[in-house]
Simulated scan of single mutants.
Amino acid sequence: MSIDTISKPLLHNTLIALCVVFMASVFSYLVLRSHLLIGIGTIASAATLLLFIFALVIYALPSHNHRRFGAANVVTAIRAAIVSLVGATVLFAGERLVLEPALPALIALAMSALALDCVDGYLARRFRLVSALGARFDMEVDALLILVLSITVLLLEKAGGWVLLIGLMRYGFVLAQYPFPWLRAPLDDCFRRKLICVVQVGALCIIMLPFITPPVSTAIAAVALLLLFYSFTVDVLHLLRHAGEAR
């Protein structure tokens, strides 16, 4: 299915929803500027990243088999806006992040994105607007948030470079689908996968707290990584088993 097959009502509804979220996000970025101690460059980067994410959403719109974009996807779009701001702030702060008084605000933003993660799924089920687009949109926002937080933990020197594996594992799984197409098979909805995702974000946010230092922060990160590795291993073995049965 190509993007040309998107119904006009759905495309129109989606564009309006994303435009409203984008404009509200940029306004919020400007309001939060003093709290996060960020410049116009950071705001522009966050807005650019958000535009890129929304462009990908529109490209994937054919997989949304409903006439409306839906409240659930709007919530996910808001989460994407939060993650974009956190990511841009971390990118521009760099190694200075350890000295940033705005760190508590970053943690609060990350936790708000995590809290909203519980809302979008509920809304999708409540209004019967569950779709492949919504599930993928939600998953990729989660993955981006975890990657950003992993980088933050590294910059704060709360764990070694291996902590980036927490953020990169999802993308490694996606890249592995090219040489191993059987990894592209759909996975059933799983509470274990959702729970471990929440644990990753929660653990990384805890590590970012100023009073959590090595070796405690290192231990928390290691446990989070082991749980994530376990979850991916279970999924890969499941897909491998089903690929073998299909032959």
Rank of each mutant, 00 (worst) to 15 (best):
I16P: 02
I16M: 12
A17R: 06
L18H: 08
C19A: 15
C19Y: 06
V21G: 03
V21A: 08
V21N: 09
V21E: 07
F22V: 01
F22E: 10
F22Q: 12
A24Q: 10
S25V: 06
S25M: 08
V26I: 14
F27D: 08
F27Y: 12
S28V: 13
S28R: 05
V31F: 12
L32D: 00
R33T: 12
R33A: 15
R33H: 07
H35Q: 14
H35N: 11
L37C: 06
L37N: 12
G39Y: 11
G39I: 03
I40N: 12
G41D: 15
A44F: 10
S45D: 12
A46V: 02
A47D: 01
T48F: 09
T48I: 14
L51H: 03
F52N: 06
F52I: 15
I53P: 00
A55C: 11
A55E: 07
A55T: 13
A55S: 15
L56T: 06
L56W: 10
V57C: 10
V57L: 13
I58R: 10
Y59E: 11
A60Y: 09
A60D: 10
A60I: 01
L61Y: 05
L61M: 09
L61N: 09
L61R: 03
P62S: 07
P62E: 01
S63R: 13
H64N: 01
H64C: 03
N65P: 00
N65K: 15
R67C: 04
R67G: 02
R67P: 03
R67S: 14
R67A: 15
R68E: 13
F69W: 08
F69S: 06
G70H: 00
A72G: 13
N73R: 11
V75E: 03
V75K: 00
T76Q: 04
I78E: 05
R79L: 08
R79M: 09
A80M: 05
A81L: 05
A81C: 07
A81M: 05
V83T: 13
S84L: 04
S84V: 03
S84W: 05
S84G: 05
L85R: 00
V86N: 06
G87M: 11
G87Y: 05
G87L: 09
G87T: 11
T89S: 15
V90P: 07
L91K: 06
L91H: 12
L91W: 14
L91C: 08
F92T: 11
G94R: 11
L97G: 06
L99V: 06
L99K: 13
L99G: 07
A102Y: 11
A102L: 05
L103I: 11
P104A: 09
A105C: 01
L106G: 05
L109V: 06
M111C: 13
A113G: 14
A113C: 09
L114F: 08
A115H: 02
D117T: 09
D120A: 07
G121W: 05
G121Y: 01
Y122M: 02
Y122G: 01
Y122L: 11
Y122W: 14
L123S: 02
L123C: 02
R125P: 00
R126M: 05
R126F: 07
